[in-house]
Amino acid sequence: MNIQYKKGVLELCVLSLLKKRDFYGYEISEYLSKHINIADGTVYPILRKLKSEGMLATYIQEESSGPPRKYYSLTNFGRQSFEKERAAYLEFARTIEALLEGNEND
């Protein structure tokens, strides 16, 4: 499937994951590549874009083992946008599905 096509939806998936709790970059990358067939590296540009849009915030947390990790958390703005985008996407997806299945009522 076309990568550009997937990318918009991937943003929604990242936001939906971060709604549950804070994660660090690698965890998010693992979660996405487990479910969706994309290159592992794709998630980092997405995280950066979401952060620059003010949807995500980051903080550094020291770990007992290994280097400190950069955690991503959903901002209030991100939470609100996610709820809106999610509803809009699900609505859109239902319409497309109906169109592609060819069972729209003319």
Binding site: S33, A39, G41, T42, Y44, P45, R48, K49, S52
Partner: peptide, 20 residues
């Protein structure tokens, strides 16, 4: 190999953050 092409990845950082 799983990460993907570094050139393409760098380009994605460029495209996403231009306005910012």
């Amino acid at each position: 190999q799983k990460l993907g092409d570094p050139l393409a990845l760098a380009a994605q950082f460029g495209a996403g953050a231009e306005s910012v």
